[in-house]
Each structure stands twice: as C-alpha cells, then as structure tokens.
Design a protein around this nucleic acid. Sequence first.
RNA 1: CGGGGCGUGGCGCAGCCCGGUAGCGCACCUGCUUUGGGAGCAGGGGGUCGCUGGUUCAAAUCCAGUCGCCCCGACCA
Length: 475
Amino acid sequence: MAKGITARSEDYSQWYLDVVLKAEMAEHSPVKGCMVIKPTGYGIWEKIQQHLDRMFKETGHVNAYFPMFIPESFLKKEAEHVEGFAPECAVVTHGGGKQLEEPLVVRPTSETIIWDSYRNWISSYRDLPLLINQWANVCRWEMRTRLFLRTTEFLWQEGHTAHATHEEAEEETMKMVRIYQKFAEEYLAMPVLVGRKTDREKFAGALHTYCIEGLMQDGKALQAGTSHHLGQNFAKAFDVKFQDKDKELKYVHATSWGVSTRLIGGMIMTHSDDQGLVVPPRLSPRPVVIVPIWRSDEQMDAVLGCARGMVEGWDPLFYYLDDRDQYKPGYKFNEWELKGVPVRIEIGPRDVENREVVVVRRDTGEKATMPMDGLREKLEAMLVEIQANLFTKAKARVEASTHTVDSYDEYKARIGEGGFFRVFLDHENPEVEQQLQNDTRSTVRCIPFDAEEEEGACMITGKPCKYRVVAAQSY
RNA sequence: CGGGGCGUGGCGCAGCCCGGUAGCGCACCUGCUUUGGGAGCAGGGGGUCGCUGGUUCAAAUCCAGUCGCCCCGACCA
C-alpha cells in the first residue's frame, strides 16, 4: 500500500525494517550493528525517558552518572557476571597513542563500576537504601543486530539500588518490574506478561530476574524490561559492607533494573501497520499535526491565519502546524501517516468558511468533521481514546495468540505459528530447557506471577508440575 | 561462526555475460504552472564505479586477493 513498505503478511522482518527506515526513526551507521537515531525516533525515546524518569523519581530514585570506561579487572570480580558479559565486551587497549596499562571495557552494564563507588558511599544503615538510576549508553558486541531490537550500542536506563535486607531488595525488585508493567501498558499500550525468568535466562550474577514480556504481531515474544535481585553477590565482590543497628557489619543487598531503546522496537511491532508507524499518543512528541490546504496566496494567508488563531493558547508541544509551502497536502498526509502521528487535522478554505476542520485518526483511519470551537478538548479526549484503543486491540491480539497446550507433539506442531504457549515444563531443570530450545527454537519466556495452581505433567519429562509457564519463540 | 545477498552521484537501481568517453528513477537547484491523498513541464548541478594488485592500447566490465555492510540461523536486552 504505502510506497516502499513491504506488507507484514509478505515479509514481517522486511516490513519492520521498512517502517524504521521510511518513517525516519533510525538508519544504519557505518559501523556494523550501530544505528543513528533520527529525530522521529529520538523524540519517542525522549518521551519514554520523560515518563519513566518521573515514575522513578516518584518512587524515591535519583539520577546520577557513572563513566562508560570500566577497568577490565572490575568485570572479573563477580564470576557469573564476567562469564555472562565478557564475550560481548568492547575493550579499549590504547589511549592517546599509547597502549594502556590496563585495558578498559566499554560498559555492557554498569554494576561493577557502580558498586566500586558504592563501597565508599555506604558505611551505615543510615546510608540505605541507596536508590540511583542512570540514563546511559552501553555497548554489547552482539553477533546479530537489528535496528532498535538489538544494536551494538544502545541507550537505556539502569537502576542500581542498595538495601539493608534481602526483603527490602526483593520489594524493590518487584516494585520496579511493576513500574515497567505499568509503563508498558499505559504508555506503550503494550500488554505484557509479568513474571520471573528461569535460572537459565536470568541476569548473569543475579539471584533471580523478573521481567515483562510482550508479544509482537508476528507472534514472537520480546523481552521488554528486566528487574534483577542481585542478593549480596556484588556487595561481596566489591566489599560493600555497612554497620547495622545491631552493630553487626553486613553485606549490602542489591538490585538492578533496566529498559532500553528496544522498547521502541516493541512499540513499532505492537501497533504499526502496512501504512507505517503508529505511535501511541502518550509517546508522541507532538500528537496532533495540522495540514493546511490552499490554492492561491490569498487562501494561504486566510487558512494559515485561521489555523494560527485556532491554536492560540494551545500547548506548543501538543501540535505541529505543517505550513511548509514546498509540499502539497497529499504529500504531507502520507508523510505524517508514515511517521505515525496519532491525529491529523485538515483545514482548507471550505473549513475556514464553516469554522470547522477535518480530523483523521491514525489508528483507525476514521475521518470526522468537527467545529473549531471546543476543538482542543475534543482532540484531547480523542487522544485518550486512541491510547485506550491501541491497548485494547493489542490485548485482544495477545489473548487470541495465547495457547494452552499439554502434549509436546502438539507444542512442536504449533510453536511455529507464533504466540505465547502456556505449558507444563520442568523449568528448574536447565537440560529440559536446552532440549526445548534445540527442538523448537523456543524458550521459557517467563513464569508468570499470576500463574494459577494447577496440577500437570512436564510435557517433556512428565515430571509433576504445580503451575504452567509461558514459552515462545522470541526476538 | 555457518548460509545467502550487496558494494556504481544523497537514496534506490541498471550497465558487467560479450572491455571502448557512466546511465535511469527519486531527491536537489532555477523558472513557469500547480496545491482537499505522494503535482506537471522545461532547463540544470552532482559519481576516484568499496579497496589493492594483475591482464590489456584501453577495465565499472575480465582475473586474483582483500575490506565492509545487509539479510537468514546458533548467542544475547
């Protein structure tokens, strides 16, 4: 349909790539796996940052910034951590033309450099909890990359907190995954499963990992956010102790949690269509675009004058008046559709005369004529409705793609069609998971918090299970 | 790391088989006409053909090598 966008039904990954490129979200940089995030994409990231940052601060966190270079030796202090991350680290060996005495790792995540600082920041129970977040870039040398979903360098936030007790750290870990859930559902309009990762899938160096997991339109799952309970692993590795009320010297309990620019990929694959991007209103930098229409110069003056009068007093970031003279209206309609602006307003000479405008929704394509009086209130209500509609539609899709399966044969036969599969699986046995992956290229995405008690037999080994887990093929 | 593809104006491609002054569409610049779903006409600017070497009077084209990127899998947010 739209020029240059492959239909989803024809080739889903090509569609995704087309949308990212044609909507001018991002482009490939000269370095393998790296991307240039263009204004259309970066504006959405800024909205993500704004909303999340507020949610973090409302729950008592503050921002700080730690350096991107980490001494190689730091990474090695936590055994599981280094094993998990060393293979994908970029390492700087030279600086200022000289070989460095110790190579520097470009952070793949910041636990080590942060806990090295925390050692000096924490000495008493009065210093706890320490609730810090940072917005940063990180670097992971992945073999296979895809714009937004997995890039060599990506942007993210990483929270790193320190607590006096296991229980407090657990509470924090849970609190943050719930914040991610809220953000995914209420802002990205992306329904997610919330639960715990299996030991095989958990963060390198964590006791356990909680996650939110989305389901894309092609039926593949996407890990969209993780919250880790790190226990005392990093405190021990970096010797971070505090003196408690009982005078005892104790190791600190830690958490870390993060979401990345991958959320933008998730947003695209949750809502966008064959016409291009669809941006949920709450993530749109300017959710309303006004396209004026004219023939003559006099009409241009009249229409633009009327449009400018109409938006007087509106928040400048609520709308964009596209008064560019070098493009015709049809071109602009297509451009803004491609870029996913939630609502478009058309205003021409006829409308000026009638004191009305044509309003078009990106999510449904519906056109309606509305009076200029009281327009802003109507638009605001419409944006709320679009936001809700996107979530409802996505939710229905995920529900329709969630299957309950009991036999491994049926699982193997159906896993290729995509979707979440609720199954009995002995997820405590890593070999079972490995077999699942070998046989079906799928993994346990999460053990849902809301899994109901249910008696059943592991579909691979027959071992009795007390609840179902969710498995899927994933990005 | 295995499999596939591609490197030619900013972007997308043709030309290569069969060597002979580098072409098309879009974009860009100028002018006129246009403007309610990607405008038309006329004129114009812009390219060491990824890189290195070889063959040849002559290489985008043939030969050898090399580098890079993209896509599909195994690893990962």
